[in-house]
Simulated scan of single mutants.
Amino acid sequence: MIRHTFERILASRRTLLGVGPMSQNCVDATIELANEYEIPIFLVASRRQIDSEAFGGGYVNNWTTEEFSRYVIDKDKKGKVILARDHGGPWQNTMESLYGLSLRRAMESAKLSFRADIDAGFQVLHIDPSVDIHGDPSADEILDRVFELYEYCWSYAQSQGNKILFEIGTEQQSGGVNMLNDLHYTLSSVLKFCKKTNVPLPLFVVVQNGTKVMETRNIGSFDQSIRVANELSPEIQMPKLVELCKDFNIFMKVHNTDYLSDESLIWYPRLGIHAANVAPEFGIVETKALLEIMHKNSLHRHAERFNEIAFNSRKWEKWVLDAQRTSDNDKSIIAGHYVFSSQEFIELKKEVTHALAASGIHLDAYLKASVKASIMRYLRNFRLVRSS
């Protein structure tokens, strides 16, 4: 049923949107837009953002998989939001890396997380075993891991009477574009596996289209006027990759679409890209809106305290290109959404909410509106919503 809905939408050259659940306001904004415009929008939760109770939940609203799913399903009155796991697989949860789990233990851990997703009613599972803290696995080794997790999840879902769809990814985002031969090998291998084990083809395959997010910008080749040496430009290469996906009856999805210009985004449906994920940008938008409203209302001390909490979390470390050249303020903005659920921030937010309420400002409504505006930019450029 879901696949048929997507086929109907994509037949008119549109691109589906996956939103990373960066905060409760971001989740609420997504649900409200999906219901208002009656369009499907994916909520794509990474294991760091949302995970099962066995893994201590995630940093987004301190939700476990079960709590997150229940919250979305209850609020999604028209059933338009698609619950999806993003980057499910071994070592995709901080605990698995922190404890240095072996491959076998990490795979068992990933299966436990996937089981919780299926039990909670997730509809799409992204199987991504591209991370390996012990080495650099070959393409065939990664595919073997994909197939093991794929068959496990399908069998478990069948035993529980649950319907699920799959998204597969076999490499980390590089900022370049997939080679045609590499994608053909992946899709051919997947087709053989599905026929052999009698499991359905995946809904999506993740394709590199020249995007990569660092700091608060996209540094990949897709949005650049200067092309990468020895690489065909995305607008030349992407139609070939799209056609290849069509040949295998698998939709193409791209990640790291954050911060692209409107001029680049309008090319997504034109090129035939079926779906795209956006996540950090929405967290940054909410963080900037929070700082802006505090400074506009002379809550400078509170803004400074927020910057201190965010900076001290050091969650900016994985995102900065050069720590010495990036200002402390920028680091705080990058890390801001990671601390929204910390006790320190919750107490600070109560003070800010109370102070703003005295001026007739509802803080969460203001923040949610800012995130909504950012999500709408993608919905319009992807032709899911008509431009006014």
Results as ranks from 00 to 15, higher is better:
I293R: 07
A357L: 10
A84Q: 14
A365K: 07
G176H: 04
P21I: 14
Y338L: 03
C26Y: 02
L265G: 01
H126G: 02
W316H: 05
Q24R: 12
M376A: 07
A369I: 01
L244N: 13
L143C: 09
N35S: 08
G100I: 10
G175L: 09
W154E: 13
A365R: 10
I293F: 09
P21Q: 14
A116C: 07
L112F: 08
K192Q: 13
P40R: 11
E67N: 04
L291H: 00
E7N: 13
G220I: 02
M22W: 05
D262F: 09
I250R: 02
L299A: 06
E96M: 11
E38L: 13
G336P: 00
G18D: 04
T170V: 15
K75F: 12
D119E: 15
A289Q: 10
D322K: 07
I142W: 00
E67M: 07
L260W: 01
H337D: 10
W91K: 00
K253N: 15
F147M: 05
S46E: 05
G56Q: 05
I236W: 08
T30K: 00
E263H: 15
M1K: 15
S359H: 07
K192G: 06
L112V: 14
V254L: 08
S359Y: 13
V207W: 00
N61F: 07
N381W: 03
K246T: 09
H274A: 08
L10K: 11
E171A: 04
F193C: 04
L103V: 15
S97T: 11
G121M: 07
L321G: 10
K246F: 08
S69F: 05
N209C: 13
M252K: 02
A358G: 04
V146K: 04
L16D: 04
N93D: 08
D223K: 03
S113T: 06
Q24E: 14
R270H: 12
H295N: 14
I2N: 11
K195P: 03
S388N: 11
A116L: 01
T94C: 13
S221E: 05
S221C: 13
I164E: 00
D364I: 11
R386C: 09
I82S: 08
P40C: 10
M107C: 09
V385D: 00
A355S: 13
E215W: 05
A11V: 06
S46V: 03
H274P: 02
A29G: 12
S97Y: 06
W91H: 05
W319E: 02
Q172A: 13
D322R: 03
T94H: 11
I226A: 10
A229M: 15
T257C: 12
L165C: 01
